[in-house]
Write a protein that binds this DNA or RNA. Structure first.
Length: 346
RNA sequence: UGCCGGGUAGUGUAAUUGGUAACACACUAGUUUUUGGGACUAGCAGAUCCUGGUUCGAAUCCAGGCCCGGCAG
């Protein structure tokens, strides 16, 4: 941000938390014409907590003396994110709702609403960097420990063209310090875990998926116990099996037969390759095959791999076998710090 | 109902062959980069099949009973 005078308009997605509050502050200081907006998303049951966060966001907007909007995306969020989430589980896969939410809601609907307000940009508190040449590219942030680029792989040029990530060049600690020194009204908690699930995922799925007890089987076919529904598990899962003499890990799940196969050998969950579908390239498809850094889960450091085309899909071959690659999760590709794109694991 | 082995926390095992019950898993909580999962740390348990007996002292020895595997037929 080098703006100091023009008044380009920016709409900041404000959750009431530290990151988005500092985002708004930074933009204002940089001379942008800033407004804030809260997104109301779908929640089961009462919305008490969300309303509170909206209040906080509004207070912060007021204290910054910027206009404040509230968008109700409840229905759309339910349709795009929650229903997708359930559908994936129903098929025995492991969805990544945050990826979809980013693409459909935050950088989809929100962006659209923002355009209707005639703003030039939207901004969020994501830790990621954008570099603009003739294309806009996403890079990992300065604070590698907060890197959120994993969740942004579905974005495209149309969207990125209107996006700002002011926090990309800051350490999380600096952001916190700024928030403290700003004396912002008390801030909302940062979100962890699936935002629309109040307690246990298990309970949520149980309520929506019609779970039935089924068998837990060992690799050699021995019946070891019962589970409450095969949907509930994901590959590599250890908790919740209730088996003794372990630890046991979910090796396969068979939703049709409502059966879970477990192993004691972690090694058996390692795979050298995967097939990815629904590929998105952020600034165009590169020449394949190519060597990249990949991540198959948010919470991991990248590993080297080679990408090849296979049918209409992408075959990812890792230099080192990866553990518990779960269908439905995202695999993303980097070249150095640049996020090239990603896909959904089959 | 001629013959062996065994019954210990929710589960699986251990306890120098008499000395005052341990370990793992499960479970619970916390930590960890907006998902699932994983990992790490901590916590948790009146559990010695029953009844008698021997002994200062028994999960360990003895007797009887009940139950469970199996060798047997």
């Amino acid at each position: 941000m080098n703006k100091t005078n023009h008044s380009e308009k920016v709409l900041v997605a404000m959750s009431g938390g530290v990151d988005s509050s500092v985002t708004a502050t930074l933009l204002k200081r940089a001379g942008f014409d800033v407004a804030g907006a809260f997104m109301k998303l779908w929640r089961p049951g009462d919305n008490f907590k969300q309303d509170k966060n909206e209040e906080k966001a509004k207070e912060i907007a007021d204290s910054l003396d910027i206009p404040f909007y509230s968008f109700n995306f409840g229905e759309e969020f339910k349709a795009e994110v929650v229903d997708y989430f359930l559908k994936e589980y129903r098929q025995g896969r492991t969805p990544n709702p945050c990826v979809v939410c980013n693409n459909e809601i935050k950088f989809g609907l929100f962006l659209k609403q923002a355009s209707d307000l005639n703003v030039d940009f939207i901004a969020t508190g994501h830790y990621a960097r954008l570099k603009r040449n003739n294309k806009v590219n996403i890079y990992r942030p300065k604070d590698k420990s907060k890197d959120q680029t994993y969740f942004l792989w579905q974005l495209d040029q149309n969207k990125l063209d209107k996006v700002l990530f002011p926090l990309g060049n800051f350490e999380r600690e600096e952001v916190e310090r700024m928030a403290d020194s700003l004396n912002l009204p008390d801030r909302a908690q940062e979100s962890h875990e699936v935002c629309f699930i109040p307690n246990e995922i298990k309970d949520f799925l149980n309520k929506h998926l019609d779970e039935k007890p089924g068998k837990i089987i060992s690799e050699d076919g021995e019946e070891l116990g019962e589970h409450e529904g095969a949907y509930l598990f994901t590959l590599g899962q250890r908790k919740g099996l209730g088996l003794s003499n372990g630890p046991w890990y979910v090796l396969e799940k068979n939703v049709k037969e409502n059966k879970i196969v477990v192993t004691k050998e972690r090694e058996n969950l390692k795979k050298k390759e995967l097939i990815a579908d629904e590929i998105n390239w952020i600034s165009g498809k590169p020449d394949l095959p190519m060597k990249v850094i990949t991540k198959i889960r948010y919470n991991s450091s990248g590993v080297k791999a080679e990408l090849k085309e296979q049918d209409n899909k992408l075959k990812v071959t890792f230099n080192e076998s990866q553990w518990a690659i779960a269908p439905g999760q995202s695999v993303v590709f980097y070249s150095g710090d640049q996020l090239l794109g990603g896909g959904v694991i089959q």
